Simulated assay, not measured.
Amino acid sequence: MRGLKKKRRIQIVMVAAAALVLSTGLIGYAMRDGINFFRAPSQILAEPPAPTETFRIGGLVEQGSLVRGQGETVRFSVTDGGASIPVVFTGVLPDLFAENEGMVGTGRYVDGVFEATEILAKHDETYMPKEVKDALEEQGVYRHYEGEEGT
């Protein structure tokens, strides 16, 4: 009887360990495409990512770089003050998207051009995504607004 209880406990521990390994594997598999790393233009030029890697880029839309093409295709450059990356996007831009304003885009860096699949713009006059603000502060470009948190 005593040996049977010990054997049963070992079986339960083994099944629990297998379930834990399986659930960890399934979570990792599900998240493999959902994790997008953020990069500033300076980081992209210093270490260009693979053309198959999807990531986020952020910074300010460079003044004078916004060019609307035929249809819904838009070209512009995004800068962090230290470097500038050309961006091409096909789709409808957010209403608040403008030159000299903060933006974050998701996409891939192919042949020196960031091909965006999604563009996000700031939502009020003082908002800027944390990643963009940190990258711009690092370059010495960002200025704090009065009443902004963290000032």
Rank of each mutant, 00 (worst) to 15 (best):
S23K: 07
G25D: 09
L26N: 06
L26V: 14
I27M: 15
I27A: 15
I27H: 09
G28W: 08
G28V: 11
G28A: 14
Y29L: 14
A30M: 12
M31F: 13
R32D: 11
D33L: 03
G34V: 06
G34S: 13
F37D: 13
F38Y: 12
F38T: 01
R39P: 00
A40F: 03
S42C: 07
S42P: 05
S42G: 07
Q43G: 14
L45C: 00
A46M: 09
A46H: 09
E47N: 10
P49V: 08
P49S: 03
P49W: 12
A50W: 08
P51L: 10
P51H: 05
T52M: 11
T52I: 09
E53G: 02
E53D: 10
E53Q: 13
T54V: 13
T54A: 11
I57S: 00
I57K: 00
G58H: 02
G58A: 04
G59V: 02
V61M: 00
E62V: 07
E62T: 09
G64M: 10
G64W: 04
V67C: 04
G69I: 03
Q70E: 15
G71N: 09
E72N: 14
E72I: 10
E72M: 11
V74K: 06
V78I: 14
T79P: 03
T79V: 04
D80C: 04
S84T: 13
S84R: 11
I85S: 10
I85H: 06
P86D: 08
V87C: 02
V87N: 05
F89H: 03
V92D: 11
D95M: 08
A98K: 05
G102M: 04
G102Q: 04
G102E: 10
G102A: 15
G102T: 08
M103A: 11
T106V: 13
G107F: 00
V110Q: 12
D111N: 14
D111T: 10
G112M: 07
G112K: 01
G112Q: 05
F114V: 03
E115P: 01
E115T: 11
E115A: 14
T117V: 12
E118M: 14
E118C: 08
E118K: 13
I119Q: 00
L120Y: 06
L120G: 07
K122H: 06
K122Q: 12
H123G: 07
D124Y: 09
D124F: 04
E125S: 12
T126P: 01
Y127S: 14
K130C: 02
K130D: 11
E131S: 12
E131G: 12
V132F: 02
V132R: 05
K133Y: 04
K133M: 11
K133D: 11
K133T: 13
A135T: 06
L136G: 01
E137D: 12
E137P: 06
E138D: 15
Q139F: 10
Q139C: 08
G140S: 05
G140L: 01
V141R: 06
V141C: 04
V141M: 15
Y142H: 03
R143P: 01
R143S: 14
R143C: 01
Y145F: 15
